[in-house]
């Protein structure tokens, strides 16, 4: 893929818009996390739960728009190694989102900071990539959105045990088992997407 083709490909997938949205989300996450962590009436960095839950979700929602072109079937007849392109696309986007969001939680990273942001980024992008394969990129945002919002709505119910598994987006990063579903979603979503691509 030449540099021009790459540029056209990225533009066709709406990557500039995704980049602008991602910058907004990062700035918002950074400001909100800083504000929440410095309020005297909260318990310091532990008050950053809303940012940890919602910022990776927002970034993943924006990513969903870039996972398919205007006409997938037409694209696939072109002599391009699409699996490689898809792997690079989803891999680079996940790493970029994770790095940017992690930078917003560097202060006390273990208490609802960088580590939890990275975990949730991996989980949310995995959910979105998997959904793009199963139900198409148009509605790929729906499962991750519904899942995280539902778990967030039930936040009073979280206190260890099974909650580590089903409510992983809200667990502290020190809860080891909360990483398992996030990593599983990330691996499954990435493998599905790289192998089959978004449903046309």
């Amino acid at each position: 893929m030449t540099a021009r083709a790459l540029r056209l490909h990225l533009r066709a997938r709406g990557v500039p818009r995704f980049g602008a949205g991602l910058i907004l989300v990062t700035v918002f996450a950074g400001v909100a996390a800083q504000w929440l962590a410095t309020r005297p009436f909260f318990d310091g960095p532990g008050a950053r739960v809303p940012v940890v839950a919602l910022a990776p979700l927002l970034a993943a929602l924006l990513l969903a728009g870039t996972l398919a072109g205007a006409d997938e079937s037409l694209e696939r007849v072109t002599p391009v190694r699409w699996r490689l392109v898809r792997a690079a696309h989803v891999g680079a986007a996940t790493v970029l989102v994770a790095l940017l969001l992690a930078a917003t939680g560097l202060h006390d990273p273990a208490v609802y900071g960088s580590y939890a942001l990275v975990r949730n980024t991996l989980g949310c992008t995995g959910l979105v990539a998997g959904a793009a394969v199963l139900i198409g990129a148009r509605l790929a945002w729906l499962p991750a959105f519904a899942y995280v919002v539902t778990v967030y709505g039930a936040s009073p119910a979280r206190d260890g045990g099974w909650e580590n598994l089903w409510a992983w987006p809200l667990q502290p990063s020190t809860a080891g088992w909360s990483w398992a579903p996030a990593l599983a979603a990330c691996a499954a979503g990435a493998v599905l997407y790289v192998r089959w691509g978004a449903r046309g």
């Binding site: 927002l58 929602l61 969903a64």
Partner: peptide, 13 residues
């Protein structure tokens, strides 16, 4: 397509 979820989340915040 992403207006609905993004605007919904923004209103939630």
């Amino acid at each position: 397509r992403f207006t609905a979820p993004v605007a919904g989340l923004a209103l939630y915040v």
